[in-house]
């Protein structure tokens, strides 16, 4: 699981930080391990203009959310909203053991909450 790339994103996270006046933001913790992730986004003309995250946690959760922030940059919010778990795991590009799925998907869930808030939708099934 711990390829060079994952460790690189963990130690040098991209899109880490805080936005001045975000249009939408959400923060969530994983009570099992105490990982915390907050995502902030600015939206312009229906697309993600800026996205960044803050938080602390394991290499898997931090690398995953950092890659996700990079990925959604400039994309229409509706497309980001439609992004699936499977696509998230593909993006991460490493086999994730069952016990670590929650870590890999924490940032994804937080981003999903942001797009939900922005689009005025409910979070779908499968997000415990």
């Amino acid at each position: 699981m711990y390829q060079e790339m994952i460790l690189d994103y963990y130690r040098n996270p991209r899109h880490f930080g805080e936005l001045d006046s975000p249009d939408v933001q959400h923060r969530e913790a994983n009570p099992l391990c105490g990982d915390i992730i907050e995502v902030q986004m600015k939206v312009k003309n229906g697309a993600v203009n800026q996205a960044c995250f803050q938080g602390k946690g394991c290499a898997i959760s931090q690398a995953a959310v950092s890659m996700l922030m990079e990925h959604v940059q400039g994309k229409p919010v509706s497309e980001v909203h439609a992004f699936s778990k499977e696509q998230m795991l593909d993006l991460l590009g490493i086999p994730v053991s069952y016990a670590r799925l929650k870590c890999a998907l924490l940032g994804f869930k937080v981003m999903k909450m942001c797009t939900c808030k922005h689009l005025g939708r409910e979070l779908g099934e499968g997000f415990a």
């Binding site: 699981m1 711990y2 130690r11 099992l32 391990c33 105490g34 990982d35 946690g57 394991c58 290499a59 898997i60 053991s97 016990a99 670590r100 870590c103």
Partner: peptide, 26 residues
Amino acid sequence: DMHAHDVASVLDDAGVCIRSGHHCCM
């Protein structure tokens, strides 16, 4: 600087079961 979960995952690959997290003492 590694998170306990990452350490536990690597040890698990070697068949070593250790606990990681806050151990119910947040």
